[in-house]
């Protein structure tokens, strides 16, 4: 049984204008599996509680602490508290790790396709960090859709992971604003793009898709149309964009 515990904020790192990573030290740390999440609970003085689930961004190999990467949503009860109020040394209540469905382990030595929209990249980043820490070399491709280059969370670290030359390839697509001289994708994920990115991995690829519900639906349906079996595709939808 997983119980609620009180974590201490150890570090706060801005990732993009709307996204920060929070390093939390856990008194009852338990090794997680890449893709799992924690439930976070805030309690007001009058007893009112707000609860949200946040994906773990860090790799399981890191002991006693986790990173949660959280996007600030304008009307979000919990995300605004994290962004605007929480400081290093503060305490926060959470329980986890939770979930056994949307998880990947490096021991599963099959081609891996990761598709992310916006902050949907967070659980996939845990998988990529785990992959690196476990020195896996399975063919892996990340297709990452962001509105603008400034919104691409973890960009610098992703470029470093790519430079390790261990079988990881990364494809960005920018839907609103592209870098100057950009020759990559600059549109929403569509079947032509899925075909180009997925095909070289073959039909046995394991697929994880995380992002706004509309993006996840499109990507999952598109992959089935190009011949990937539905039971190889795992999805984590986080609802409409901007809520």
């Amino acid at each position: 049984m997983i119980d609620w515990q009180i974590a201490t904020v150890k570090a706060i790192k801005p990732e993009t204008p709307e996204v920060k990573s929070f390093t939390l030290a856990l008194p009852d740390w338990m090794k997680h599996r890449a893709g799992q999440h924690y439930d976070v609970r805030l309690t007001a003085e009058d007893g009112y509680q707000a609860q949200r689930s946040y994906s773990i961004a860090s790799e399981p190999e890191r002991a006693r602490e986790i990173d949660l990467t959280i996007e600030r949503l304008a009307d979000g009860e919990v995300s605004t508290y994290f962004h605007d109020v929480l400081a290093v040394g503060d305490r926060v209540e959470l329980r986890g790790p939770i979930g056994g469905y949307f998880v990947w382990e490096a021991a599963l030595n099959a081609p891996l396709l990761l598709i992310a929209g916006g902050s949907g990249v967070v659980p996939l980043m845990s998988m990529l960090r785990h992959r690196r820490a476990a020195r896996a070399i399975n063919p892996t491709r990340l297709l990452f859709s962001s509105r603008t280059p400034d919104d691409a969370i973890y960009f610098d670290e992703l470029e470093k992971l790519r430079a390790a030359n261990d079988g990881l390839e990364i494809f960005y697509t920018f839907t609103r604003e592209r870098p100057p001289e950009w020759k990559g994708y600059a549109r929403r994920i569509d079947n032509a793009m899925l075909n180009e990115v997925a095909k070289p991995l073959g039909k046995s690829a394991r697929v994880f898709i995380c992002g706004p519900t509309a993006l996840v639906e499109n990507a999952a349906n598109g992959l089935v149309q190009i011949g990937i079996k539905p039971n190889q595709i795992k999805t984590e939808r986080f609802g409409p964009t901007g809520t």
Binding site: H37, S53, G100, Y101, F102, E236, R237, G239
Partner: peptide
Amino acid sequence: MVDGNAVAG
């Protein structure tokens, strides 16, 4: 709509 994962806790 989200996934069953969302009620895992």
